[in-house]
Amino acid sequence: MLLKLIEYIGALIEGPIEGVGRIMVLFYSVLKWLFRPPFEIRNIFKQMLEIGVKSLPVVLITAVFTGMVLALQSYTGFKRFGAEGLVGSVVALSMTRELGPVLTALIVTGRAGAAIAAELGTMRVTEQIDALETLATNPVKYLVVPRFLSGTIMLPALTVVTDIVGIIGGYFVTVILFGVSSRAYLRTTWDYLEVEDIYNGLIKACFFGASFALVSCYKGFYTKGGAEGVGQATTGAVVVSSMTILVSDYFLSAWLFK
């Protein structure tokens, strides 16, 4: 009975542990190729466009409404004990420390992570990755490194936009809809916000960018089977990346914001 239970648990965790191991091997390979010329400059810019610039519209909408709802909820809540003056700092701190990096990462994962897994997965099942190798081109260097680098660079960049737009959304609701004075909102925004809040948030964004890109590339790169395999890789990329972001967020926050 006990042996069966251990066997069952073993079988259950074998897959994820193997997955983590293989992601680490891929990560090592990425690091190895990252600093070896020729650098895939054109490819990197293309991926920065795909992952970063093209995600901008969804990121903007998410940011502005998150800032707005944050202001709305904190204003109506804080009003009960007369602390509505603190709405500005609540919005600013929440956006820079937490919601900016996490929401941007989740949105970009849903959009670009799925696209990366689907594209690489299709390339795998249609033998395009094998074709790259036969043309003496290392597929990790050609396909994974540019995506990894773009994810790591573009996510903090998008997070800066999210932080700013979120604070503007909060300003709109607090100042224009609820009539709090503009000076009071801005003063509470700046008074309690420290530079560390911003850059620790950006460090988190960097980590999220690297991890979603790596997980999505891994899922796509090792796709098996046909269309169904590509579908599974895409779903897997979004689920595993999102979980990684949310779980690592806690530990990174605990470490960074002591």
Partner: peptide
């Protein structure tokens, strides 16, 4: 190693079953 293998691969051309063109 990988570099040596890539040098050898330059001697080859391969036609895949589904052509495997970069779409």
């Amino acid at each position: 190693n990988e570099d040596g293998l890539n040098e050898i691969r330059k001697k080859f051309g391969m036609l895949f079953q589904s052509a495997a063109l970069f779409d």
